[in-house]
Every structure is written in C-alpha cells, then in structure tokens.
Design a protein around this nucleic acid. Sequence first.
DNA 1: CTTGACCCTCCCATGATGGGAGGGTCCATA
DNA 2: TATGGACCCTCCCATCATGGGAGGGTCAAG
Lengths: 150, 150
Amino acid sequence: MNIGEAANHSGVSAKMIRYYEEVGLIRHPARNRNGYRSYDKNNIHELKFIRRARDLGFTVEQISALMHLWRDRGRASADVKRMALEQVAALEAKQREIAEMANTLKHLAANCHGDGRPECPILESLAEGCDHARPTHLGKGFEKLGKSRS
Amino acid sequence: MNIGEAANHSGVSAKMIRYYEEVGLIRHPARNRNGYRSYDKNNIHELKFIRRARDLGFTVEQISALMHLWRDRGRASADVKRMALEQVAALEAKQREIAEMANTLKHLAANCHGDGRPECPILESLAEGCDHARPTHLGKGFEKLGKSRS
DNA sequence: CTTGACCCTCCCATGATGGGAGGGTCCATA
DNA sequence: TATGGACCCTCCCATCATGGGAGGGTCAAG
C-alpha cells in the first residue's frame, strides 16, 4: 500500500506519516523497487493508534511512550493509567485557564453598550488594568486559538 | 527608559518587546545616541495593554486591531464588543473541545485497573478505536499543552 | 506515447516565545 | 584610569505539529 492509501485508511496525512517516520515515532517502512514507501495492515493499525492518541491531545513524545507500552506485552496497566490521568490533569488545567479568560472577557463585554458611541469598558480595562483583566496565574500552557489539525 | 526597565514595568519581556516592534504591533521607539531603544510612559502604557490582551488570549493580529480601536477616539464600542464576543466564542469552543478529550480519557482511565497486569482498556481503545476514542469533530484549534508564557 | 495521478526529497512558513553567540556601552568601584 | 559586571545591540536557531510548494521521478490508463 502506497502512502496515499495509507493516509486515507488511517486518517493521518501523507505529510504527517513521513514526519512521524522522520522523528522516529514509526519505523522506516519497506520500500518498493521504485522507492515508494509501502505499508501493510500493521502499519495502518499503528497509524490509527497514533491518530487516536493525537485526538486525545497526547504529544508525539507521549505517543511514543504509549506505543512502547502498547508493544510491551508485559506492561503494567498502571503505567498507562498514570499517563492517562496526567493528561487528564493537564487538559483540565488548560480548560480552567481558558474558561477564566472567557469569563473575564464575557463580563467585560456584558458591561459594554456595544453601540455607536466610543465609550467601552473593554478597552478601558485593557488600558488601565482593572482586576478582571489580570489572570490569576494559576494556569499555564496557552498558545493560541484558531488553528487545528483536520 | 531602556528596554529592560520597560520590560520590568510592563510585564512584557525585552525579547517580546523587540518582536512586537519587528512585526509592527508597536512603532519603532526613539533611540539614544548609543543606539539603545528608549521608552516613555506612553510606550509602557501600550505594552501593558498588549500584555493584558495577550492574557485574554488575543493573538497579535487581533491586538493590532484592538489597538487601532483604542487609539481611534471616534470608534464604535460595538466593534470592540464584537471582537470580544468572537473571542469568547473561540475560547468556549476550545474549552469544549478540551473538555471532551479530558472526559473521554477519564472514562477510559476509570475502566483501567491500573495494576501490574497488562490488560488495559486505554490501550485497547487507542488500538481498536471504540467510539469513545473518536472525537466528534465539533471543535478545532487544539495545538498542544504544557508550554506557556510567563 | 501522453496525461494525470501518484510519489520522492528538500526547503520554507506558521505563532509566540526563549536561548545564545558575538560584540558594543555605561557606570561604579578598586 | 582601568576593569568588571550589567546592560544593550543584531542575528541566528529551536520549539511543535502541520501544511505548502518546487523540482523531479514513476506508473497506469487511454
């Protein structure tokens, strides 16, 4: 199976399949005589695993660890559970952080007339720094919004 | 005021002050005879504005728009409010997306014994793709966890 | 034999941020 | 006055996962 078909079957783009190979998340696949990468069912299975782990927010490095555990028949499920719960904690922390930003902004917007006049408590808060505009510094790890994987 | 002092007073690192200048978010400041950047109270005010807007999750591009509105005395507060509410919507969408990942993972972890045995529904789900492991594709915009601004 | 759909490798961009090298400036103290 | 340390400058690189694209090879159907 060529890389395009593997991408279709796994839900991982060809670009990313090559990337995962480059960074060592997956092994170098067999090559056809023409140099094309060739994938079998096992590879597809692995790629689907990766895809699902990414969908749960694990980084490539974490997925690497998960795949080692997956392949290790003598693993302790406690190790997997620990990783999962750590990830849950990280996700929930980020969630709280974002919720706080949203709340702050929602309160500011609620106090803004939103008409043709220039008076605007949102800008005033950004300019003068009322308490609402200050994060509590409890959470970290926010980068940006708006981009995403397909 | 040199850049280090400006950084201290504004909460924006010197590196980022130079970056914001480079990408056109702030204007080129005055320079001393020795070539050092020189900032006054207005600049600090602006930097604090930027800092607070970043703390609310706005991107540099959005902050640029906000600053234009801020400087425009004839602005309509409706424009600011619209931006704020759009950002609220984006934040809440991301929050839901993350919550869903956390929930899925929490359910999986709850079914995992977490002992020394290898049987593990978390890995099984990643490998076999039960419904829980599939995102609903309602939300987008997740990049990663764990890194953050100070 | 041509055409279009693949595939290959390499390079570049994203966004906000930090790290660091290599070198200049300034001030206080020895 | 000399020197050391704390600044500042510019320029380059790395992050992380992902996509875009150039330039070129391969293959199969018409």
